[in-house]
Design a protein around this nucleic acid. Structure first.
Lengths: 346, 346
DNA sequence: CTGAAAGCGCTTACAG
DNA sequence: CTGAAAGCGCTTACAG
């Protein structure tokens, strides 16, 4: 059905070996011959059979992306940018949703890697460590950790490999500090933090960042309440209910993840709380339509396109065997100020 | 590195032929032997080399999804559901963003299909017909058209094949009729329609559906103004400006696509128009967070999970050579009523 | 009942 | 300067 190398070779009057060499730009083939062969191949719209090539070279020209759910606006945008970045470099992208499920994630790692479907995996891990990750580390798979670094137990035989895998993440410190300043300037002294799971480093980091920023500005540690969620919208709503149920509830809330922020806003609305009159809110994972919310939501934006490009660049580097210069890349977030933060109620 | 069939064969004390036959469930292999081989293979976490298998069988176990942009919430959710539906049936998904660009779309069709990277493509086409589509049709590629049917010129040699490809789309008629009724019940007599490009069938269909529903309810055709956009957010904003600039501007607007609806809402806000006091709005491609908009947005929801599953089922059917029973599958949309429709201003 | 052998489409060391 | 040949890991008709 499709045009194969043999057909190109016949049309050009050479052997398949010569076609292969010419198309790969091997200097052995004189420029003229090469040009003619390339012309013929393009005219016939020849594309090498991906399977045959991968069988021979052990390289597939594609990599996997494992995220929790592309319907989550943050991951949707990330996946889009990664795909574009990948094609620009000549790679295809295999998409996988783990739904924050460790088992499913491990299944993807196993089937993509062991089946030689991809050259490597870009992973937003559902947990700091999983059996599948251990196995992938043991097999020295090409892994790039996105957004969430993993915890490598020193004892593990896979530790050496895993700790050498690139980590691409955003640095929220300046943006969180700005959010804290915004709260304090508006007179807020009791703050709630809806944190990602505290088993993940993002969870711990964002929580600690906010706590430190707040206490640096004079807020009493005892007046900061942390409720951890599970990255899902529902958990944000539950967290808000918990926060509002406190004997001295916070007057300002930091939603440290996108979907949980949406959940928090939904919960606030259901509880009849007005934002920012009754309570102030700063969210995470800014989206253009946060502008249309009631009220327009102030939120921290991650540098998604830069994150995507850095991740793809790291993966391509791994594939080409370039030395990993720095294990961790951090890219700065920024605060998008809108109208969900107001003066603390008396 | 990875475990290959030869290793499994050695461990089980049989030949690779027997392993292959056993794993494929061939009846020639006695149940006991087969069970033992399966145990060994699972114990070693064996996965067949995808490239080798595809070279031999001309089947890759994966298909492509070409959408305009997964960052668009509708396509993000669709892509997520398709991926899950695909793994459930044992397939991988290669993701491609065309950005509504015909050239890019054709490039994906060509490279995925001619390179035997996938067994078929699920396509949300950027145009009713493109050279790449013609070529794919000519090559008798497995194609499933999603959301947007394509126009097959009878003259084309690819016509016969293309017109036999399954089309999976949503049927907005009942939901649009309900929206029209909502407008009319609230006293609206002048309505604006922000339509998808009129070169696409969704564009024409949704426009005609709304016009017919409205005129059936007694609205004068001359009081209905249609402005076509290009599926992008900006075009929704431009359309609203155009509509508001009319000598007798509409009192109600139907945004017939998700992103353009967001753009329309942004444009309304910039123009200082209050919704629904000054103007009513019904959007498309409902998302959970439309609830949080100001005001909560009434919108038509597409049956995304059902669409995804039908599309994947159709593709798997094509791959397995099942007869295409019905070329077109339509799944009903429904209206999610919130608070963006109010009485027409006097 | 099971194995040896051919062949899918490439790439690359080896001949000439 | 270019071609014939081997081999990557599977599947499947063919022998025995």
């Amino acid at each position: 059905m499709a045009v194969r190398m043999r057909a190109v070779a016949q049309a050009a009057g050479v052997s398949t070996a010569t076609v292969s060499l010419a198309l790969s730009g091997n200097a052995r083939i004189p420029a003229e011959t090469r040009a003619r062969i390339i012309d013929v191949a393009e005219g016939m719209r020849y594309r090498p059979h991906a399977g045959a090539r991968s069988l021979r070279t052990d390289l597939t020209g594609s990599f996997g992306l494992v995220v929790s759910d592309v319907a989550n606006p943050f991951f949707g945008e990330l996946a889009g940018e990664i795909q574009r970045s990948a094609v620009r470099r000549g790679y295809s992208l295999v998409l996988c949703n783990s739904d924050e499920d460790v088992q499913r994630q491990d299944e993807y790692l196993q089937s993509l890697l062991a089946g030689s479907r991809v050259d490597g995996i870009l992973l937003v891990s559902a947990a700091a460590m999983t059996p599948g990750l251990e196995a992938a580390g043991h097999a020295k798979a090409r892994l790039v950790f996105l957004d969430r670094p993993v915890a490598v137990p020193a004892s593990s035989p896979a530790a050496r490999h895993l700790s050498g895998c690139p980590v691409i993440r955003s640095d929220a410190s300046a943006a969180v500090r700005e959010a804290a300043r915004l709260f304090v300037q508006h007179g807020h002294r009791r703050v709630g933090i809806i944190a990602p799971p505290l088993e993940t480093r993002v969870g711990v980091d964002r929580r600690d960042l906010m706590i430190r920023s707040l206490t640096d500005l004079g807020v009493a540690p005892g007046d900061i309440t942390v409720v951890a969620g599970d990255f899902r919208q529902d958990s944000g709503e539950r967290a808000i209910r918990q926060l509002l149920g406190l004997s001295r509830p916070p007057t300002a809330v930091f939603g440290a993840d996108g979907l949980m922020t949406i959940g928090a806003m939904t919960g606030l609305r259901r509880a009849g709380m007005r934002v920012p009159e009754d309570i102030s809110l700063v969210g995470f994972d800014d989206a253009p339509w946060f502008e249309l919310f009631d009220p327009p939501l102030t939120a921290i934006a991650q540098p998604i396109a830069a994150l995507a490009d850095a991740a793809v660049a790291a993966m391509v580097g791994l594939i080409n065997g370039a030395a990993v210069d720095s294990a961790e890349t951090s890219l700065a977030c920024h605060l998008v100020s809108r109208r969900s933060v107001g003066p603390a109620p008396p």
